[in-house]
Design a protein around this nucleic acid. Structure first.
Length: 853
RNA sequence: GCGGACGUGGCGAAACGGUAGACGCAGCAGACUUAAAAUCUGCUCCGGGUUUCCCGGGUGCGGGUUCGAGUCCCGCCGUCCGCACCA
């Protein structure tokens, strides 16, 4: 029996697609377009099967939309700047550019072997000056527009990567890549003013109706809008004032202390003359607020000895503390504490024996006896002990207190955001240089546009830790562009998320001398279907939304949202294995012995661990090359689409890929060894076929409808199931049926066309084998004949008292009365009715008859 | 702690409120083979019975709505993910 020769076939069709430039596209104003994009990869080395699931999905969508007649843009490129290249340079004594280039060559070849329909003429790598020169210009435009700025601030310092991280890159107090506990450092850094768009980025989320709800919620929380008030407290007997932010201005009469962040300017100033306070602050910064959150929730404070004047009652004073749980980065860096109605304040007050004065009375509680115990009362209630607020609800009291603050000039209602500005400075070599010069006389001077790009020096050393740009003997020394005196280049480079924030625009006109051509961007954007991992929910996806708006503000384009549709795919998982000594083992290093035990090469027992996301560190990876060598690209592609819903994790198993390989061969035999002779391609199908042939036609057209719907809704696993049902129907088709050849040819051709987006090589070869001279990739998506797809007979379930008692085969759309009569006539039904008349009969057309006895 | 998602056979999973388990994996039995692989046929939720069929139970647990609930509502339990001293 002939096996399908994927090696020859896949190479053949890849050559034909390439030679005919089938997947290169150009903007065609007026023609409907479809921009499909998968999050571009970081060129880290070799691909494993887990890497290609989302590219397979993207390719499926691209080929499907192309068959539907859309002008499809489906590009690929490389997110090529980043720290792993530097680490490799250190470990392997190579250069980041060489290492990156080598990886790109390897991974490009791997993607090409998968037969993905990319327009390779648009390939980009972000580490090339032809790419990053444009973002240097963007940076300068942001600077001019006030969207980029430099400030000294407390930043997240990763002690392993020796660089600053953005808030979005700190996960549970640790660096997102290194896993090192992040420290706080006060540094002068470049920031992008993403907070200027906080409201817009939040409001526009509701319009992203083709985004997963989960991602929108994550962004909503990340942006974190809180309505409240800014309240000004005068420090008693001093000039200073302390501003706090609160969402509970209604509870101001319950205030029993003010707390400053250790990094609050007033706290810093007081520490200059108070060594104990200075030591307390130093300790807070040493531990770091985020680590403290992980280790212990203990609240610690230090009384400054100052008192603040209550804004509503000048005769009242509240002590001013410095407290470790107050963040300088949120609100104003200072709070007022109302222990009765805030759990955190309560814990602090209990520890330092500060008064707990309730001002919100729970419904039905007795004002004379109500007291707060272990838990602060945070629900709604009626204000009391609160002067002019007495008797109001929490909501009304918030309004009244806010109005009074505004009238007194001691505050105002305002909104606080959790979102902070995006810190983009990185103290690393392998990134885009920030195009500014520091001049002793002129300060910060932008590099003039005519001098762009500022390129990275090639001759750098990674022998010592720290930033090679800073150590380079000559690179940073330049004349000030403004005054000509000796000055120094900025040696920080941009966060690599800067590159990925606009690459989708560059793809629209990848070879343009400008960043992108306005007309092509206007045609192709927004991306119709974006596909990638959920790990970028508040990183890349938020930055890109901001960046698109910032570019619009600077006149580059006219667009707010870059990604109209988003799909976040699940991960590919594999069982993990460990040797007796605890070392991780690759799947190919283990086997099952005669007794069914899992053993290693030497026959020693292996510990099987949980199934986890494929990762090099746990060695539970399956190399892409090995799979393509053994089974071919199409088998891998189909398997990746078939076993789990695309948004859920997929477990890769050897038996699973083998099962798919068997199916591929079954498909091949359908055309290689057809059961009966088929009429020539293009023969019209005669009317009035035998029932069996009509049944196959019905199955065929039903499959078109089902698969089309499945692909539209990203239900690829169901699409595969429907295709397998059709191939089962074709295999079981009785060949001796009159007119069989016509129905069989239609079934096979339809199957092949529907398979095209998933298994493009096999389908193309089958199409040719069926006698077609054209290339399947250019054949339109099949259209279903709804009349042919409709059943003439339907099977209706019959329930008595909610239990299934029988089924009824009856003409489709039969009269309700006739269905009821037929159902009641069923012997199983009369047995359960026991001679009685039914109390009620419900007929759902073509579905069910429900009889109540 | 807050927010979200998800709990269905031995496994991956299907099921507009309408016949639970489609499609596949694994397993079992058989055919073809000297044999193996490949291929093909049949069986496979659990319990019971008078066994071409019938009865009962079954979608994490407990309630509810409905002629009818895996699906909707309320309350639990569990798993995973995100955020986490955000004032």
């Amino acid at each position: 029996m002939a096996r399908y020769n994927f090696r020859e076939t896949e190479a053949k069709w890849q050559r034909i697609w390439h030679e005919r430039r089938l997947f290169e596209s150009a903007a065609e104003p007026g023609r409907p377009k479809y921009y499909v994009l998968e999050m571009f990869p970081y060129p880290s080395g070799k691909l494993h099967v887990g890497h290609v699931r989302n590219y397979t999905m993207g390719d499926l969508v691209a080929r499907y939309r192309r068959a539907q007649g859309f002008n499809v843009l489906h590009p690929m490129g490389w997110d090529a700047f980043g720290l792993p290249a530097e680490n490799a340079a250190i470990a392997e004594h190579t250069h980041p550019a060489l290492w990156t280039g080598e990886n790109i060559r390897t991974m490009r070849a791997q993607l090409q072997r998968m037969g993905f329909a990319y327009d390779w003429s648009r390939e980009i790598a972000t580490c090339h000056p032809e790419y990053y020169r444009h973002e240097q210009k963007m940076f300068l435009d942001f600077l001019a527009a006030g969207l980029a700025y430099r400030k000294e601030s407390w930043v997240n310092w990763d002690p392993v990567e020796n660089t600053v991280l953005a808030n979005e890159q700190v996960i549970e107090g640790r660096g997102w890549r290194s896993g090192a506990i992040v420290e706080k450092r006060l540094l002068a850094q470049w920031f992008l003013r993403i907070t200027a768009y906080a409201e817009e980025l939040l409001d526009a989320l509701s319009g992203l109706d083709r985004w997963p709800e989960r991602v929108r919620l994550m962004q909503e929380h990340w942006i974190g809008r809180s309505e409240g008030a800014r309240v000004v407290f005068q420090v008693a007997g001093r000039e200073e004032r302390i501003e706090v932010f609160t969402t509970r201005q209604d509870t101001l009469f319950g205030a029993s202390f003010l707390a400053l962040s250790p990094n609050h300017p007033l706290a810093q100033r007081l520490a200059e003359t108070d060594p104990t306070l200075a030591e307390f602050i130093a300790e807070c910064n040493r531990i770091g607020t985020s680590e403290a959150a992980i280790e212990t929730a203990e609240k610690r404070g230090y009384p400054t000895g100052l008192d603040a004047v209550h804004p509503f009652d000048p005769s009242r004073r509240v002590p001013v503390w410095v407290a470790n749980f107050v963040l300088m980065e949120y609100g104003t860096g200072a709070i007022f504490g109302c222990p009765a109605h805030d759990q955190r304040d309560l814990e602090f007050a209990r520890k330092y024996r500060l008064p707990v004065l309730p001002v919100v009375l729970p419904p039905g509680a007795d004002p004379a006896s109500f007291a707060v115990g272990e838990d602060a009362y945070i629900e709604d209630g009626t204000l009391y002990n609160s002067d002019f607020l007495d008797g109001l609800s929490v909501t009304s009291a918030k309004r009244a207190a806010g109005e009074r603050l505004e009238a007194l000039g001691r505050g105002e209602r305002t909104i606080a955001w959790r979102l902070r500005d995006w810190g983009v400075s990185r103290q690393r070599y392998w990134g885009c240089p920030i195009p500014v010069v520091h001049c002793g006389a002129c300060g910060i001077v932008p590099v003039p546009e005519r001098d762009l790009p500022v390129t990275l020096p090639q001759d750098v050393s990674f022998a010592e830790p720290g930033n090679p740009l800073d150590r380079h003997p000559s690179w940073k020394h330049v004349a000030c562009p403004a005054c000509g005196r000796p000055a120094q280049r900025e040696t920080d480079t941009l966060d690599t998320f800067f590159e990925s924030s606009w690459y989708f625009l560059r793809f629209c006109s990848a070879r343009s001398a400008e960043a992108f051509e306005r007309a092509t961007v206007d045609y192709w954007m927004p991306v119709d279907q974006y596909i990638g991992g959920v790990e970028h929910a508040v990183l890349h996806l938020l930055y890109s939304r901001f960046f698109t708006r910032a570019l619009t503000r600077c006149g580059y384009l006219d667009l707010a949202e870059p990604f109209a549709g988003l799909f976040t795919q699940g991960m590919v998982c594999h069982q993990t294995y460990q040797s007796g000594t605890g070392d991780w083992l690759f799947p190919e290093e283990v086997a099952t012995d005669a007794e069914g035990r899992i053993v290693d090469d030497a026959g020693r027992p292996v510990v099987t661990g949980r199934t986890e996301k494929m990762s090099k560190s746990k060695k539970n990876v399956v190399g892409l090359d090995a799979i393509v060598d053994t089974y071919g690209a199409d088998t891998a592609r189909l398997y990746l689409m078939s076993d789990s819903p695309p948004e859920r994790d997929l477990e890769w198993t050897e038996t699973g890929i083998e099962g798919t390989w068997r199916y591929v061969n079954r498909l091949w035999r359908l055309v290689d060894e057809p059961a009966i002779a088929l009429p020539p391609a293009g023969t019209a199908i005669p009317a009035g076929l035998a029932p069996a042939a009509a049944a196959l036609r019905r199955a065929t057209h039903k499959t078109i409808l089902a698969v089309t719907e499945d692909l539209d809704q990203f239900r690829f696993n169901r699409a595969v199931a429907h295709l397998r049902e059709l191939s089962n129907a074709i295999e079981e088709f009785p060949a001796e049926t009159p007119g069989a050849g016509h129905a069989l040819r239609e079934g096979l051709e339809t199957l092949v066309r529907l398979l095209g987006p998933m298994m493009p090589h096999l389908a193309a070869e089958m199409w040719q084998r069926l006698g077609h001279g054209d290339v399947l990739a250019l054949v339109p998506w099949p259209e279903a004949d709804r009349d042919l797809a409709r059943d003439t007979l339907v099977t209706i379930a019959v329930q008595v008292n909610g239990k299934l008692r029988g089924t009824l085969d009856i003409e489709r759309d039969a009269e309700k009365g006739a269905v009821e009569t037929a159902a009641l006539a069923l012997p199983q039904v009369s047995r359960w009715l026991d001679g009685n008349k039914p109390r009620k009969v419900i007929v759902v057309p073509n579905r069910i008859v429900s009889i109540v006895a």
